[in-house]
């Protein structure tokens, strides 16, 4: 699903060069749930941004879903983000003046999807995260856990191949973190590949594999629950 070979990313200012990723090599299988851990500044978020085509890489080769995406144009990267990748952020990143329904709808607009199809997917996604009764609420009227569930609904409504989650439980208490983790595992169980950055070692041990990043390199790999191939995956598009 995701294959990186010697990928590097350097941030440059007039005086300083920061090597955020150094010769990073990695392979993630379809349907895998991978946790990425590491200290602050180790390169976890940069890795996720590169994996999510939000940042261009400076060196190496990146193959996503069988396609070499190392040197795509900005428009091509936008297209892949829109159709194949779902994002979940620590701070939820919902649009404050849009209600739940329209927040979930946002990525579908950029796919030029017809209205009825958009509606079907949005209601299905909100059903799946248990928020179908909160469609008209704006984010500030929801709890943190509910907001993160809206973000998850937004991520899955486009039926992505991969979900990239950057500390999705970082702003939540233990109970809500547990609910979100359960939801992500459920989504993964349905066949969606998930890469999740987390500081929580307990959560990291519940996934298939944990990658520990130090100074932009994968330092350790822990295999907790090896991926078992599933005969069939359910999807929203079906």
């Amino acid at each position: 699903m995701i294959e990186m070979q010697n990928v590097s990313k350097v941030f440059r200012t007039a005086e300083v060069q920061t090597h955020a990723l150094r010769d990073l090599t990695l392979k993630v299988e379809p349907g895998e749930f991978v946790a990425i851990t590491g200290h602050s500044g180790s390169g976890k978020t940069t890795f996720l941004n590169v994996a999510g085509l939000l940042e261009e890489l400076d060196g190496g080769r990146y193959t996503f879903d069988g396609q070499d995406v190392s040197r795509l144009t900005d428009n091509q990267r936008s297209g892949i983000r829109n159709e194949k990748i779902g994002f979940i952020f620590q701070g939820f990143n919902l649009i404050p003046d849009l209600n739940v329904y329209h927040n979930v709808e946002a990525p579908l607009h950029y796919r030029r999807m017809p209205g009825p199809e958009r509606h079907r997917r949005i209601t299905a996604a909100l059903d799946r995260v248990g928020l179908s009764t909160r469609m008209k609420h704006i984010p500030s009227q929801l709890s943190g856990g509910q907001q993160q569930r809206v973000a998850i609904a937004r991520a899955i409504c486009g039926d992505p191949r991969v979900i990239l989650a950057d500390e999705p439980t970082g702003n939540l208490d233990t109970t809500m973190s547990e609910q979100i983790m359960e939801l992500l595992m459920e989504i993964n169980a349905a066949g969606t590949t998930i890469l999740m950055v987390t500081h929580n070692p307990e959560l990291a041990q519940r996934v298939h594999r944990q990658l520990h990043i130090v100074d932009g390199r994968i330092d350790q790999i822990h295999q907790f629950n090896p991926l078992q191939r599933r005969p069939a995956a359910t999807s929203l598009a079906g």
Binding site: L54, S78, G79, R81, N82, N93, I95, A106, R154
Partner: peptide
């Protein structure tokens, strides 16, 4: 700008 950044992450092209 953060909202525009978010929209870009969700798949909006520069032209959008």
């Amino acid at each position: 700008a953060p909202i525009s950044g978010l929209r870009r992450a969700l798949g909006a092209r520069r032209a959008d």
